[in-house]
Amino acid sequence: MSAPDRPSRQDIADAVTGLGWRLVLGAIYAEVAVSSLADAGEVAALVLAAVGADGQGHVSIDIRADRVVIRLQSAVSGTVTNADIALAEAISSALSERSLHLSPGFVQAFEIAIDALDISAVRPFWQAVTGYVDEVGPSDLTDGLVDPAGRGPAIWFQQMDAPRPQRNRIHLDIDVPHDVASSRVAAALAAGGTLLSDRRAPAFWVLADPEGNEACICTWQGRD
């Protein structure tokens, strides 16, 4: 059962998908298309006005000349909370009043997965060399490390049972909205990839390029 202020992934998706938001790797995202940086600044100002002081520690905004990307997650828990859902609703309402519409846009998040026999031995090296910090709260990551500036991909560590010299031990995970995963998998296969496993789908599909290098397409589904 979910904690009182920590809704399940399904509850989050049900609450925000119809508003144009998507749940990806422990945060909810939406975009507003704009035609200039000045317009992007105005959209950001509307978002900040809509959330007020309640947005502190929850809202981050990426401003570009063609889009504004809005991200919601509690900085304290490292998860999407009921407060984040309420903020998503407030933002959607405020923008709709100005005939501005949220959409999932091109939302995705990258993770680097490192296979290790002794995670406690290798994790400190990767933390030191990247300057990353411990993940704040529980998520889909195992022993997760994250960029303190929120720009780089997350890193997690996959426990190995025995050495695997026959395959690469670092792979990419690409977290996408649940409703675009199938098309992303199909595109990878059409580009020469191979489906190695869909046993855990829709949580993730394991794919490989023509030389055997692996990547996973991941969603929030199948994890609760």
Score class of each variant (00 low, 15 high):
residue 96 S to Y: 09
residue 96 S to C: 12
residue 97 E to H: 03
residue 99 S to H: 12
residue 101 H to I: 08
residue 103 S to C: 09
residue 103 S to R: 13
residue 105 G to M: 03
residue 105 G to V: 03
residue 106 F to A: 14
residue 107 V to G: 13
residue 108 Q to S: 14
residue 108 Q to E: 14
residue 109 A to E: 15
residue 111 E to M: 01
residue 111 E to Y: 02
residue 112 I to S: 10
residue 113 A to I: 07
residue 113 A to M: 11
residue 113 A to G: 06
residue 113 A to P: 03
residue 114 I to C: 11
residue 114 I to V: 15
residue 115 D to E: 15
residue 115 D to P: 01
residue 116 A to C: 06
residue 117 L to K: 09
residue 117 L to P: 12
residue 117 L to Q: 14
residue 118 D to P: 00
residue 118 D to M: 00
residue 120 S to N: 12
residue 120 S to F: 10
residue 120 S to L: 08
residue 124 P to C: 05
residue 125 F to E: 14
residue 125 F to T: 12
residue 127 Q to N: 01
residue 127 Q to H: 02
residue 127 Q to S: 02
residue 129 V to E: 09
residue 129 V to L: 09
residue 130 T to H: 03
residue 131 G to F: 02
residue 132 Y to K: 00
residue 135 E to W: 01
residue 137 G to W: 09
residue 137 G to V: 09
residue 139 S to K: 00
residue 139 S to P: 00
residue 141 L to G: 05
residue 144 G to E: 10
residue 144 G to R: 03
residue 144 G to A: 09
residue 145 L to Q: 09
residue 145 L to S: 07
residue 146 V to G: 06
residue 147 D to S: 01
residue 150 G to A: 11
residue 150 G to W: 10
residue 151 R to T: 15
residue 152 G to A: 15
residue 152 G to S: 13
residue 152 G to V: 04
residue 153 P to Y: 08
residue 153 P to K: 09
residue 153 P to E: 14
residue 155 I to W: 02
residue 156 W to Q: 14
residue 159 Q to K: 11
residue 160 M to S: 14
residue 161 D to Y: 04
residue 161 D to M: 05
residue 162 A to C: 12
residue 162 A to Y: 13
residue 163 P to Q: 06
residue 164 R to F: 02
residue 166 Q to K: 05
residue 166 Q to W: 07
residue 167 R to S: 12
residue 167 R to V: 14
residue 167 R to A: 13
residue 169 R to Y: 03
residue 170 I to R: 08
residue 171 H to N: 02
residue 172 L to E: 10
residue 173 D to V: 00
residue 175 D to G: 07
residue 175 D to I: 00
residue 175 D to R: 01
residue 178 H to N: 08
residue 179 D to H: 06
residue 179 D to R: 00
